[in-house]
Amino acid sequence: MPYLVPSMIIGILALDTTVAFQVLLSQPIFACPIIGWILGNPQAGFEVGVIMQLLWLNVLPVGSVIFPEGNVASMLICAITVLFDDIPYPNIIFTFAVLIGIAVSYAGAWLTVLDRKINGIFFSAATKSAGHINMWRMNFIEILSIFIYFVIMTLLAYISLIISGTILHLIKDTFSLVVEEKLVMVKPVLFGVGLMLTFQLIINRMKKKLSN
């Protein structure tokens, strides 16, 4: 079960995105080094964290907006990069991890919607408990709701890691040095996209200031 521990850590850190605390620990520059350190490669965690943080910097967890689950995706990218660093093609592994990460950020967004729909059931249960003045039950509902989000994100990470591991072991023999060399450009591309998104954030703020 080599994927269970990183998946559970991703599940715990994911709680910080919206469900509990919101003290930044789920942000890539914090979460990736934690994942990297636990899996034995903090250096990779720092590097992946910087790239991913730029990409997801202007994603806002505001109200009912369906936002990409960039934090979970970043942690997963870091976990894949570190778990499969025995394959001697780091650029291919990183590119593969980013592609999996994009899919996970999309799936994570919809799983967050699902979790919020489940919370609708908890809201009904809380309303009933309020009618019966059962405060203990309402506290339990809160803990259960947090636990369900943790389980959803842990499962997402676990399934993604299993799929990634299976695919990588099936295709690793087809990797070549030519492709590895070409994929050196993936990190500059991601930095370029990240910087563009960051500038959007700055420009939007300046536009707003000017219009005021």
Partner: peptide, 22 residues
């Protein structure tokens, strides 16, 4: 710190808000 734990589409923050006030 757990205000958004039961964020839902019917009442948004209300359950978490109430739990804070217990």
């Amino acid at each position: 710190f757990f205000l958004q734990s039961i964020w839902n589409y019917q009442s948004l923050l209300s359950v978490g808000f109430e739990l804070c006030l217990f």
